[in-house]
Design a protein around this nucleic acid. Structure first.
Length: 207
DNA sequence: GAGAATAAATATGCCCAGCT
DNA sequence: AGCTGGGCATATTTATTCTC
């Protein structure tokens, strides 16, 4: 391991492995085993998550996930997707998921927002290497150039951005709702026309 | 106790199965 | 036919043991 570490991520930066045997050692009960398919910018998706035995989890002690870790996909098409780990359960990760554990200068949620932003995605893009299948290595992650202001300011940015995001989500769901209402309306008009409830014989088709 | 040898852990690259 | 991503294979780094 090289000594040069990123000024802000120096607590931990690393990833796990696939346990010996791969899918054959997964089980329904046990420790959550996060793979790149579970990591989304919007949050973790663990409805179909695999689990591993406590024994394997202890063996892979180096890649145990801690609360508020920022998880970042570092290989394949899902590269750059990130989540905050906020579950109350123990969990582990495979080699496609990088654990970024920033130091106290960085608010994890802020880092997560940053990774979703243009700036973050650009850093991912610039750091990507590999031909057959692109990947980020840890050197590249350490070299990320990200704006890290004082914690107070990070919280302010966080508040402002999340308020705006909430507004957007609200607008979005309203639009989806309206689209559905219009579809329903269209369907009911069609059925009324077909059943003869409304008479459309006199209607002209407009160009 | 220094340095070599070996083992273990970790990081990275890429093949290919499964899905659409 | 193209894409996604899981997991194996290999390279590299770090830790441990051994020998002098």
């Amino acid at each position: 391991m090289e000594n040069r570490t990123h000024a802000f991520f120096n607590k931990k930066i690393g990833s796990g492995v696939t346990p010996r045997g791969g899918a054959s050692v997964y089980q329904d009960e046990g420790i959550i085993f996060l793979r790149s398919q579970n990591i989304y910018d919007q949050g973790l998706r663990i409805d179909d998550v695999s689990r591993i035995s406590n024994e394997i989890h202890e063996k892979m002690s180096g890649s145990k996930v801690m609360k508020d870790d920022v998880l970042l996909n570092i290989t394949g098409a899902s590269i750059g997707r990130s989540s905050i780990f906020n579950l109350d359960e123990e969990a582990n990760v495979n080699q496609h998921v990088c654990i970024i554990r920033p130091n106290e200068k960085v608010v994890p949620e802020y880092l997560h927002f940053l990774m979703q932003s243009e700036v973050g995605k650009l850093q991912v893009k610039l750091g990507t290497t590999g031909g057959n299948r692109e990947g980020l290595n840890f050197e590249a992650i350490k070299k990320f150039r990200l704006p890290i202001p004082k914690r107070k300011e990070q919280y302010e940015i966080l508040n402002s951005v999340s308020t705006k995001l909430n507004d957007l989500h609200l607008i979005n769901s309203k639009l989806i709702n309206q689209i559905q209402l219009l579809k329903n309306y269209r369907q009911s008009i069609i059925s009324e026309a077909v059943t003869g409830k409304i008479d459309v014989r006199e209607w002209e088709t407009k160009k």
